[in-house]
Amino acid sequence: MEREGDGEKERKSIAEYRALLDQVNTKVEEKQYSEEVLALTSRLLKKNPEYYTIWNYRRLILLNHFARDVTTTLEHDSTPLTLSKSTNDIIVGDLQFIVPLLIQYPKCYWIWNYRLWLLEEAEKQVDKGTTVRLWKDELALVGKMLDRDERNFHGWGYRRNIVSQLERLAEPEQKTMAEQEFAYTSKMMRAALQNFSALHYRLKLIPKLLDERQADGAARRKMLDEELESMQEALIDPFNQSAWFYHQYLMSTLSEDCPRDAAIVLDLSRDDRIHYYEQEVERIKEMLEDFDDCKWIYEALVQYSIEYHQLTDIKPKNDLQFWLDELQRLDPMRSGRWKDLREALKL
C-alpha cells in the first residue's frame, strides 16, 4: 500500500474510488444489470477484490442474464438490462477476468468463493462436455497457483473441490482421480519435502487409492512400507517437522481404532503392530548416532514407545526417563508439556 506518496495522489485515488463505488451502487440499486455495470464492477474489484458485496453484485448481474437467456435468447433481447454476449462467452470471460486477481491476491477468500460459485452456476447453463472441460481447466489453474505457493490452503481446498466435482461428473465405469492425485502429491513432495499440505492430502488419498486398486493384503503392506521408507529418506534432515507429522499420520493407521476409511493395511495382527513399532523405533534410534541434539527424534521415541508399551505391556522406564530428560534439555520452551508427560507416565 502506498503510504508515503504525496497527499494529492492519495486524495485523487480516494475520490476516484468513491465515485466509482457510488456509480456501481446506484446502478445496481436501479437493477441495471448491463454489460456496462458488469465492467464497472470489474474496475472496482481490480481496485479492491475484498469488497465481497461487489462480488455479490456480479452474481446478481449474471443470474439475471442466465434467467433471461433461457427464455429470451431467440427474441434478441437487447435492452440495457441484460448482457448481449452469449452465456458461454460470459462465463469464459468472467473466469478469465478472475485469473490475474487470483494470482495477485491468492489468499482472498472472496475471489476463490466467487470462482467456485461461477463454475457451479455455469454447469446449469452449458452442456456436460463443456462443464467437464471447464473443471479440467481449473485443475490446471490450481496447479499453477500451487506452484507459486505450495502451501496455500485455499489452493489445496480448491483442488479437492475440483477433484470431487470431476469425479461426480465422471462416467460410472470411470475410475476416480485418486491415482492421478496421488502422483501429484509425489511430484509436490519431490519439489519440497517440507510440504505438509501435500503430505496431508497424500494420506487422505491412500485408502481411497488402495480400495480402487482392489489392493490385497500384500499390496497394502507394500504401500505402508514404501511410505515409511520414504519418510526415512525425508528424515535425513531430522529437523523436517512435516516429515515427522506424516510419520505420525502413518503410525496412527496402525491403531485398532483407525477408521476403515483411513486405514492402509486392513488385516493387522497384534504381532504386525508390534513389528512395525519395533522397526520404526529401531530406525529412529539409529538417527541418534548422527543427531543426538534433535528433539524431534526424542519426541517420536517417547510417543511410539508409549504406544508400543500399550501393545506389549513392557515398560522400559530407563529409556523413557533418558529421552524425557533430553527433551527437557533440548526443548525447554515446552517444559510444561514434558513435565505433564512425566507425571502421566509416573516417572
Binding site: 500500500m1 502506498e2 503510504r3 497527499g7 475484498e50
Partner: peptide, 12 residues
C-alpha cells in the same frame, strides 16, 4: 478518512 486504505477496508 484521508487515507485510501481507510476506504479500501470498509468491508471489515
Amino acid at each position: 478518512k484521508d487515507e485510501y486504505e481507510y476506504w479500501l477496508t470498509e468491508h471489515l
